[in-house]
Simulated assay, not measured.
Amino acid sequence: MSRNPAQLIRTAISELLVEAGQSPDFDENESLFDSGKLDSLAAVKLLTILEGELGIDLSDPDFEVDEIDTFAAIMDIASEQAAA
């Protein structure tokens, strides 16, 4: 992997925001989905990136998009899985 996970995730979120007509800038704790900045299609794209490029397992049947609503929450999941 040429980029670190944080940079990959940050870039992916910025690109999804631009696709949705939003500013590519966001705060670490800013709501991405609950705020309406990103929609369910963007959530699927982000999940695909997290699983495909970073190997993050989000296959839990109880998974909710709220668990990836902020950059900080995504990084928490990435860190937990990297430590496991």
Rank of each mutant, 00 (worst) to 15 (best):
R3T: 11
A83H: 09
R10D: 14
S59W: 04
L58Q: 06
V65R: 03
M75V: 09
L32S: 04
R10W: 10
D25C: 00
L38M: 11
Q7M: 11
E53F: 09
S2P: 09
L16V: 03
P24H: 05
I56N: 07
E80F: 10
S2A: 13
S14E: 13
L41V: 13
G36K: 09
A73K: 13
N29R: 13
F26V: 05
R10S: 12
A83T: 09
G52F: 00
K45Y: 09
N4C: 12
A82W: 02
G55Y: 13
G21L: 02
Q7E: 15
S79F: 02
L8Y: 04
D57P: 09
L17I: 04
D57Q: 14
V44A: 14
G55L: 13
A82Y: 02
G36V: 07
E80S: 10
D69R: 01
L46V: 07
D25H: 05
I68A: 01
A42W: 02
I56Q: 07
E51G: 11
G36A: 08
S31E: 14
A42V: 01
I56G: 07
A12E: 12
A82I: 02
F33Y: 08
V44T: 14
D62H: 12
L50T: 06
S79Q: 13
V18I: 15
E51R: 15
D27M: 07
S31T: 10
A82P: 00
D66E: 15
L54V: 09
M1G: 15
L8C: 08
V18F: 08
A20S: 15
L47D: 01
D76V: 12
S31Y: 11
D69H: 05
L46M: 10
A43I: 02
E30H: 01
L50S: 05
R3K: 14
